[in-house]
Design a binder for these strands. Structure first.
Lengths: 165, 165
DNA sequence: AAATATTAGATACATGTGCATGTATCTAAT
DNA sequence: ATTAGATACATGCACATGTATCTAATATTT
């Protein structure tokens, strides 16, 4: 090998894995303790709730971290649980229109009490203000720019970076 | 809920997930393309290679992201593949002394060509210098301080933060 | 219009993971 | 010497995940 990763690169790689695992496990453990579904379900419910008008399954796929077969299975479970409805799409008979049910909305709201609290305790309260910008921009630099879901949130966060509240 | 996570917190949470998934998937895909085992195996092999004198399984467990049952199974597969030996520990008959074999060392070296290259292309070449420190410290702030494996690497990386090479 | 390619979504299979539990051994107190 | 509890490691099970493939519908090409 001609080049060798330096110690900062190594630290980032190690920390990315450790931090992700720790934070994720904390989220999952607390949600489970409260008899609630996983964080990934929260994201799906929230995405569908914001959409409001029915969302195609492939569109949801692009906005989530699930790959297609996994999303298909997950949606099936959510339909079985009455959280989501899955109707044939009007204009493309291959497609499915997904819609969150009232029950789904209620569950999401219930989850938010835990989920939102964890974002505060595991992230907001732990990351010191002076590293917020570097952390956000550093993470973003490892992700390709095309990610739509991301861009909105990033734009928002970047604005805060310049006028710290 | 009395407090609500702000947009920076949200960005960190979203980005932590997206960045981790993207980078991890790239690593795994490239390793697979080269017909090599996963990154997690690399970490185990490298940890054992550095130890040199045989390492107890529970010690390895603390230094890895595997939980105990999963490590037990992974080691079994590595033993079956001839990469690691697993002898009864001398002083504690419950225990197992793990040692990397020459074959294991050879595989690790082979893996490094891909693994090290990915650290360069996916991290070192992508994260701009001005965000290195914030990224490292920000990630570290989400991890409890007791992590041993981490502390050495962190110390090293932090030194670089002050005298940028 | 017929043939072909592409896309949406579902499913099968192999593998990985977390969690609970089992077995053996160790430590320390009685 | 015996017993209570902790620790090391293994295993079974349920479930999640990735990969490959399948079916049906739509788009494209000729």
């Amino acid at each position: 090998m001609d080049r060798k990763p330096n110690s900062q690169t190594t630290a980032i790689w190690v920390l990315l894995n450790i931090a992700h695992k720790r934070v994720t496990q904390t989220f999952e453990a607390e949600l489970k303790r409260a008899h609630l579904p996983s964080a990934a379900w929260y994201d799906i419910l929230w995405t569908l709730e914001r959409a409001e008008e029915g969302m195609r399954q492939n569109e949801l796929e692009r906005q989530s971290l699930y790959d297609q077969p996994n999303l298909s299975r997950t949606i099936k479970r959510m339909v079985d649980d009455g959280l989501v409805t899955q109707c044939p799409a009007a204009d493309d008979r291959r497609g499915r229109e997904l819609r969150i049910t009232d029950e789904g909305k209620a569950l999401r709201a219930e989850m938010w009490k835990v989920y939102g609290g964890l974002m505060l305790s595991e992230i907001e309260d732990k990351v010191p203000a002076e590293h917020l910008s570097g952390l956000i921009e550093g993470l973003a630099s490892m992700v390709p720019d095309q990610d739509e879901k991301l861009q909105g949130k990033l734009k928002n966060a970047r604005e805060k970076n310049h006028k710290p509240s």
